[in-house]
Design a protein around this nucleic acid. Sequence first.
DNA 1: GTGATTGCAAATCTTTTGCACTAAA
DNA 2: TTTAGTGCAAAAGATTTGCAATCAC
Lengths: 144, 144
Amino acid sequence: MASSDTNTRPYSGVIFRLKNAGLRPTRQRIALAKLLLASDNRHVTAEALHEEAKNAGVSVSLATVYNALHQFTDAGLMREVVVDSGRSFFDTNTSDHHHFFHEDIGRLEDIPNDQVRVSQLPNAPAGTTVSRVDVIVRVSGLAN
Amino acid sequence: MASSDTNTRPYSGVIFRLKNAGLRPTRQRIALAKLLLASDNRHVTAEALHEEAKNAGVSVSLATVYNALHQFTDAGLMREVVVDSGRSFFDTNTSDHHHFFHEDIGRLEDIPNDQVRVSQLPNAPAGTTVSRVDVIVRVSGLAN
DNA sequence: GTGATTGCAAATCTTTTGCACTAAA
DNA sequence: TTTAGTGCAAAAGATTTGCAATCAC
């Protein structure tokens, strides 16, 4: 069971997911995917992920981080969340859910799925289809 | 009824609102306010408003447009809406309402207030207060 | 090998800032 | 006047692009 096949095991989940998404499992993509996709509850900016990769001893350029985040997003492995003009967050939780945005510290937090109910939605304007409904609850510290 | 007091009438609404908001009614602010606040249903970017002002023969710098939009927003005359990373929209409708965002053409549209109902919301995380709840319905053309 | 991927630096885009100039009160 | 407001050009961020070097297959 426990395989001695250390050649493919440790990363295989990530490699599989990348291949499955049509992305060649390069060193950088594997490293970033390991950092990101380990948890299904991460919210990162490109800058932050780049920093994190560096701290983890992984050498990746910022441009590659941007590329990877967009490729992961296009492949459905992540989701982009817009809450703050001027910077994008990427969310490893691809299931249907919504967010708190802490305005004072610039942090995103998932809202458990069952804690928001949108009980009435408008029809999409003629000629369009709804691609997504985002609920953003903006909060700030009491001290503010 | 119809007043002959053309000296104060045409702009008085706008001037009043600016003064009332503590903003000195300068030529540029008056012009921008006239363009914007005439309708309570406008969604503009700074760039677009700058363009519009130029087309209307009003000379304002882009920096002044940014200043004015933020001042109007701080004064509660407008609202900033974030839907698209990398660019801000300003909405002249300050009442409680939500938005469609047409992803393919980058346009915002108000959703009539009674067409969205959020019937359940989470508690704000400890130590925070909700400052706003935004519902964004992202739509795109059928052809996409 | 060979085509996809990466890294770097430069380019782009939006927004902000510093400061001399102008205008409202 | 006096002080707030404006315009310009430069600066600052975030993101993207072009292209030669590098890596996966």
